[in-house]
Design a binder for these strands. Structure first.
Length: 707
DNA sequence: ACCTGATATCCGATC
DNA sequence: GATATCAGGT
């Protein structure tokens, strides 16, 4: 089939699609048809008769790779099998397993996810008595973040501490020791973390000329998506894979760089022209996604940036409604205001064309409650991963042990499930198994019945290989009693998750692939899988990258939440928050709503405290936003407004509605406990009956309202 | 000596 | 909701 490139693409896109030889850098603004360009380029290559196997497509997520490949196949009207596509990590994993021997690595290495790595950090810390009893010693997740950051940014731990956590400099030596011990532990047990995958691949390519040349020859065309979010080692990998004159296309947008926390550097984009002086630079600036009013706002966000971006998106002059600024009274009301907005939007758009975006996973909790109540189905991206749930990890740990018997963390996890076995005993058992100390094992098994069962079970799996699904079936049966006793409250729900895990496993033929996929590309969301159902999307902004919706609502645009409080003291981090805000707004096609609650509920103290609108909002030209009066009476200060808030009704003409609904329902007070609301006394007080304390008149600020 | 349950503290985004 | 530590039980 012949592709009609001239009519389907604009001149810049066409240039990007048809420039196939030599290095190309495509600077693609938000919504400028970047995906379309990559898709057409893939199809064009195939159309020219290029062997799909010689194409390497590196993307940020496997989902992105999959989508591009499917769309390209659609264009071609035929499959595009053989294209290597995926994340840097998954490509590294595949290559490493194939050539593990060249590195002196066992090819059944296990990939550690974040919780695994943190667990090891904790163990080496405890085993070596580092930071014991010191309450201000950093926690395992802080320690691991620092170690990983130091590797990603390729700076010494000391330097990372000095830059980002100077208050921890006094622990520098202990932390360095933990980092060293962590590294040794991984080598000792054939474990590999995310960062290792990349560095090991680099080592493989550097040390082994034959493999390097073979890969270069085999992967003749390389495309790298989201290049602004690659880190130093990824940048070098691209160069190693492409060679000095390779046909490599890097696509990215420096204004959308939002992963510097993990060592990504826009330096890779800026440096691309230095590495490849002969490279062709193509800019895609025409926006096909958003209406002019939304684009205007997005351009303003960038205009406020310290570092100036040489870009200005222009659209086809599509008219549309002004972006709205919603100002709910607090974050609880925000959930209701958002729900109302979604219901209103639903009249115009399909649910699947609507998304709610936020800075951090937990910012959507209140809204999720409301959505469940209203019976609106949604899918959530970001936040806790399916594979990070304790029960899933338990089961996966069994599988990991079958694949890699030396996987000590998995061993400990499995053993700790047995009553009366804790960290110490499980470690002793491990050594007994490794050293073949039958006597100790026998002694323990005699004492603990469950232990013998467990060891027999594992032994059985190891001696007769089977498909992941069959193993899981037996395993789940065995695990069920343990699940029940561990989670008496909600084990049916967890059992359901496990059955879904088995469902997923049924499409895999080997354990290796199944396990790596579970750590590199865990299933995005669980729950009753009904792909046909029309669903609302909830997502962290990071997970929303590259996607678009007709209507987008951004929550919690207040200081400390967005920008995150972690960024407030750091100018560079603030710039990244700004780009993140830019990414959020550029997701919207027709409707954009920004929500900035006037106060935040502090769960800790049980009170609401006033919130400052995000600085990014304040610097916007008021003309480009339509201010909605929902939930707030004009002229009332944020503080009073917060006090006047009540859970009865979210919006509508505030004062009256508030008085009406304020007179029923319950609330909670820090000292008096739970009480029934008897009367609302404008502007700011409530008469409440507290059992045991009688009637009290209390300022709204000190009350926590119940649903 | 080791396990288990209760209590206080803190919370970021991803592969 | 998860993690870290402490107190009490075997």
């Amino acid at each position: 089939m012949q592709l009609d490139l001239e009519n389907e693409l604009n001149p810049s896109q066409l240039e990007a699609v048809t420039t196939l030889q030599g290095p190309v850098l495509v600077i693609a603004g938000a919504g400028s048809g970047k995906t379309r360009t990559v898709v057409y380029r893939l199809a064009h290559l195939a159309d020219l008769g290029v062997d799909p196997e010689s194409i390497l497509l590196l993307t940020f997520t496997r989902k992105a790779a999959r989508e591009m490949l499917t769309r390209a196949s659609h264009l071609l009207g035929q499959g595009l099998h053989g294209v290597t596509g995926g994340t840097f990590h998954s490509f590294a994993n595949l290559t490493l397993r194939r050539y593990a021997a060249a590195l002196g690595l066992k090819n059944e290495f296990t990939i550690l996810d974040r919780p695994d790595s943190e667990e090891i950090v904790k163990q080496v810390k405890e085993a070596n008595d580092i930071g014991r009893k010191d309450r201000s010693f950093p926690k395992k997740n802080t320690i691991y973040s620092l170690i990983s950051k130091s590797r990603n940014k390729e700076l010494s731990l000391e330097e990372i501490l000095a830059r980002d956590a100077s208050h921890l400099l006094l622990y520098h030596e202990e932390l360095q020791r933990i980092a060293d011990l962590y590294r040794e532990y991984k080598t000792a047990h054939s474990l590999v973390d995310y960062d290792d995958l990349l560095f090991l691949l680099e080592r493989l390519l550097l040390e082994n000329e034959e493999i390097r040349e073979f890969l270069r020859y085999r992967q003749e065309y390389i495309m790298v998506d989201e290049f602004q979010d690659t880190n130093l080692v990824q940048g070098r990998l691209v160069r190693l894979l492409a060679g000095d004159e390779g046909n490599v296309m890097a696509v990215g947008d420096d204004a959308q760089s939002i992963y510097s926390f993990r060592g990504a550097t826009v330096g890779n984009i800026l440096g691309f022209t230095e590495v490849y002086p002969q490279c062709r630079i193509i800019k895609l600036e025409q926006n096909y996604r958003s209406t002019q009013p939304i684009l205007g706002l997005c351009n303003q966000i960038l205009a406020g940036a310290k570092e100036k971006y040489d870009k200005r998106l222009y659209s086809r002059d599509l008219d549309g409604p002004k972006p709205q600024l919603l100002s709910p009274l607090n974050d609880m009301t925000q959930a209701r205001v958002a729900l109302d907005k979604i219901l209103a939007l639903q009249r115009e758009y399909d649910l699947q064309d609507i998304a709610v975006l936020f800075r951090a996973g937990f910012h959507s909790y209140h809204l999720e409650v409301q959505l469940n109540k209203a019976g609106i189905s949604y899918q959530k991206f970001g936040g806790m991963k399916f594979t990070e749930a304790a029960h899933i990890k338990d089961v996966l740990a069994h599988l990991r042990l079958i694949q890699n018997p030396g996987d000590l963390p998995a061993w400990q996890r499995v053993m700790s499930l047995i009553p009366s076995v804790g960290p110490k005993t499980s470690e002793r058992l491990y050594h007994a198994v490794v050293q073949g100390d039958k006597g100790y094992l026998e002694k323990k098994c005699a004492k603990i019945e469950d232990l013998r069962d467990k060891l027999d079970l594992l032994e059985g799996f190891r001696t007769k290989p089977d498909t992941p699904y069959n193993i899981l079936e037996t395993l789940l049966e065995h695990y069920h009693p343990q699940l029940k006793s561990k989670y008496p409250d909600d084990y049916p729900k967890r059992q359901n998750d496990l059955e879904q895990l088995a469902q997923i496993a049924s499409s895999y033929s080997g354990l290796d692939l199944f396990l790596t996929d579970m750590s590199l590309e865990p299933p995005e969301q669980m729950g009753e899988a009904d792909p046909l159902q029309d669903r609302l999307t909830l997502s962290t902004i990071h997970s929303a990258k590259g996607l678009e919706w007709s209507a987008v609502l951004v929550l919690d645009l207040v200081e400390e939440r967005f920008p995150s409080k972690h960024a407030l003291m750091d100018a560079e981090a603030m710039e990244e928050e700004r780009r993140l805000f830019y990414v959020a707004c550029t997701r919207a096609k027709h409707y954009l709503g920004l929500s900035a609650p006037h106060s935040l509920h502090n769960r800790y103290q049980g009170i609401s405290s006033p919130a400052t609108p995000s600085p990014f909002l304040q610097e916007l030209d008021k003309e480009c936003l339509e201010e909605m009066s929902e939930g707030i009476t004009a002229g009332v200060s944020p503080k009073q407004a917060a006090a006047g808030e009540n859970p009865g009704k979210g919006k509508k003409q505030s004062a009256d509605a508030e008085r009406d609904s304020g007179a029923d329902g319950y609330c909670r007070h820090k000292i008096f406990g739970r009480g029934k609301i008897v009367q609302f006394i404008p502007p700011n007080k409530y008469k409440v009956s507290f059992p045991g304390f009688g009637l009290k008149v209390v300022i709204g600020d000190y009350l926590q309202f119940e649903e």
